[in-house]
Amino acid sequence: MLHLHFGVRGGRTALLRDTQKAPLMVIRPFELPCGTLMVFLVNPTGGVLGGDHAEIRVTVEAGARVLILTQSATRVQPSPDERPATQDIRFQVAAGARLEFHPERTIPFSGSAFAQTLTAELEEGAQFALTETLASGRVQTGERLAFAAFESRVQVSVAGRRVYLDRQRLVPGTLTRAPGVWGGHDYQASGVFVGGANPADLPATPGLLASGLSAGGAVWLCGVSARGPALDAALAAARATLRQQMWQAAPLTVRR
């Protein structure tokens, strides 16, 4: 369980309250040159196990600027009793606040099952960004599509109105490699940006990454690639251009 509450004190974003229960914890936040407060989520164990449930709650008060990253990939360990590892993430972002969440890749190991729900409730005038990537498995070792199930529900609302909804469910089977599904790729990306101006130039990398406007007016991102670094680079470029166009914000400079 991890609960984080951010606000502004003395003109700077600060982590005002936190509740941390192993294995989820945060490394001491530090401020980026742009004033955004960056926090690394850490899970020092070998990953998430079947039957594990993680609960993350983040509240961002008006005026605060928060970037949440994860220290390493989410490794979803095998689930011998077929119970999925579950993760429930809820964000509340006040008007005039900004929250960005860009976790490292989710890697479902052979025999694993994972179900994630992410809900972001924004006040009018809040800014929010999320990007995530999924691997087909431990690709470097030749393990691909050996997991049991992956499920993700992401919903973003502004002033109670749903602006983005993405539901993914993948139970690998004979058709997962079909053209149109995952094809010959091993990496997938998705994401959403909300708040600020509509971008005049939606980012795209042919055959790799696309973006567009949802029915509710959010900017979505979607990508596929045979190689993870190529997808990561396209996603990073898309984040930079969307931050600039929508929020007039410079690219984030993060040293790991």
Binding site: Q168, G180, V181, A210, G223, V224
Partner: peptide
């Protein structure tokens, strides 16, 4: 596949509407 699709559809709830088609989503956008 069509028969399985119909069978699943007849037993679905609104919470069961899921997809996983990143390859086609990128292609359709282009």
């Amino acid at each position: 596949a069509a028969q399985a699709c119909v069978h699943a559809a007849l037993h679905a709830t609104p919470d069961d509407l899921f997809t996983f088609t990143p390859h086609l989503d990128v292609a359709a956008s282009e």
